[in-house]
Amino acid sequence: MSSALYVQLLYLVCGGLLLSAVLMLWRRQLSAIIGLLTVQGVLLAGLAALLGTRDGGVELYAVAVGVLLLKAGVLPAVLRRVLADSGAVRETQPLVNVPASLLAAALLTLLAYAVSRPLVDLDPSPTTHAVPVGMVMVLLGFFVLVTRRRALSQVAGFLLLDNGIAATAFLVTAGVPLVVELAVSMDLLLVVLVLQVLTARLQATFGVTDIDELRELRD
């Protein structure tokens, strides 16, 4: 692959990741949010495969397949099951409304670019210039996590944050060593499964999956 084509594809994928992250703030339909996470999973797998064609390593193709299975297959399937069980279709009342969220997204994007400057400076290349995209996703994931009130939205925010970290890892170092990658994916899968069980228990004990109802414990 010519380097010009590689750079174009790289920026296309990163642009897609950024767009899907911002759209997660815009959409309040929970099924749409899960759909966006699936798209992100596909894009992340594409990113890994793209880096694989640049470096010519088999390892990255294996990682790409793994990412595709986990982030575009298994995790969205788990979330869909939670959605079907809970019956909550929409994020009813986020703490911050949609226009304000999008404004916040713009500010967080600027912040991410400012913070990532030392990361780009250490090893300037077309790939590392895209690192701020990963950082934006991390910050937006954090934002979703603190402003949304449905249990499922919080899980989605956590996954967005995690996708941001994965994107950053691919962009700065073409992924971490395989041992670590495996352990991390395993942990991620288990955390989401644990959260699935806990969501069911929330539903059973509180009757709702609204996090604001959690006010049993306080000083």
């Binding site: 996590l145 955390v191 644990v194 806990l198 929330l202 004990t205 509180f206 959690l214 049993e216 414990l217």
Partner: peptide, 22 residues
């Protein structure tokens, strides 16, 4: 224990610690 309190504690624990550790 599966009481309201312990489910709430478990939820907060997993979310906050997973994000922190992420």
């Amino acid at each position: 224990r599966r009481s309201r309190g312990s489910v709430e504690a478990a939820w907060k624990y997993v979310i906050i610690c997973s994000v922190g550790i992420a």
